[in-house]
């Protein structure tokens, strides 16, 4: 098992190299440069060129690429932002933490909100308790994150004055953004859980459990659910990607200083150091989450666990 985890973590390295390459490539191809963005339209070209040179922007892109990797690996130096001149790490890290908090809480919430109704509608299939929640989920899943966010702002900040509309300092500030990120995907989770449960309930081992004299509740919550949750967990983990994008929207809507909005703001300034650090950190987060999902799956499902351990299979 440890060998497997290690192997996966080692894959991070080529991933980072690849991400950095793509960012440098894209920055290289697109028009514009940081000095012009910083100095404004009226500045003479000579000054723009000087500043670009000072920033190190005008080097050939492969050289920039290797320099960046070298600095990152050997000196743990992520450089300075072209825009604010501050240390990239100091700028990026706190914002990264906030976005990760948002996204992870969002993922958890989407699971917490989505799974119980999914189970319930599966158990009560075809009845009203199934139709009504399913229809509601259908609509919610179709609402884009920013509309949802605006809706929440409208109701909770504007009309009811219950929650603050911007910032990221107190717990109250996190309620609406995390719900905005979590609820539309929760609808998906619910539908997926429902279909997974329906399948599980129809399995023979459920019939065996009933034949043992287990109560319906035990049958559902122990036997069916344990098996139904496996694909659901994978799906929830995979949805992290969507949630990180949703986090960007939430950051803009609720003025939360997260890494998504940072990256978007700095693209126009071609602030390469920040963009690199940001995207690399996000890819690392992604990879780690995928790994955790896989490991969790192995934990829960003994058939998968057998594949990862060099175990004895009888």
């Amino acid at each position: 098992m440890y060998k497997y985890v290690l192997k996966r973590l080692l894959f991070l390295i080529p991933t980072i190299f690849g991400v950095a390459f793509i960012i440098f490539l894209v920055m290289n191809i697109t028009p514009g440069d940081p000095a012009r963005a910083l100095l404004g339209l009226s500045a003479p070209q000579a000054d723009v060129d000087t500043l670009n040179h000072e920033l190190g922007y005008d080097l050939p892109f492969l050289q920039k690429y290797f320099n960046y990797l070298k600095n990152m690996i050997l000196h743990q130096d992520f450089g300075r932002s072209y825009f604010t001149k501050q240390s990239v790490f100091d700028e990026v890290w706190p914002r990264y933490v906030i976005t990760i908090k948002l996204a992870l809480i969002g993922v958890l919430l989407s699971a917490l909100i989505g799974i119980p109704p999914g189970i319930y509608t599966a158990v009560k299939q075809y009845s009203l308790w199934d139709t009504i929640p399913s229809v509601i989920a259908f609509f919610i899943a179709a609402i884009p994150a920013f509309v949802f966010g605006l809706l929440m702002l409208f109701i909770f900040s504007l009309k009811l004055n219950w929650l603050p509309s911007f910032g990221a300092t107190t717990v109250y500030h996190f309620i609406m953004p995390t719900l905005t990120i979590a609820i539309p995907p929760a609808a998906q989770v619910m539908r997926f859980t429902k279909s997974s449960m329906l399948e599980a309930i129809r399995q023979d081992y459920v019939r065996t459990a009933r034949a043992k004299g287990a109560s319906e509740r035990t049958v559902i919550w122990k036997h069916a659910l344990m098996n139904a949750l496996l694909p659901v967990i994978t799906q929830v983990g995979l949805s992290l990607g969507t949630l990180i994008c949703g986090a960007v929207v939430a950051e803009k809507m609720f003025s939360i200083p997260g890494i998504g909005s940072l990256i978007i703001d700095r693209i126009l300034y071609k602030d390469e150091p920040i963009l690199l650090a940001g995207t690399i950190l996000i890819s690392i987060c992604f990879t780690v989450v995928m790994l955790i999902v896989d490991i969790t799956y192995a934990f829960i499902d003994p058939r998968i666990r057998a594949k990862y351990t060099t175990g004895r299979k009888e």
């Binding site: 900040s157 910032g167 003025s255 909005s261």
Partner: peptide
């Protein structure tokens, strides 16, 4: 405070 989104500012 930095509020990027206009609608969010109006609501604020």
């Amino acid at each position: 405070v930095v509020i990027d989104d206009l609608s969010a500012a109006v609501i604020a």
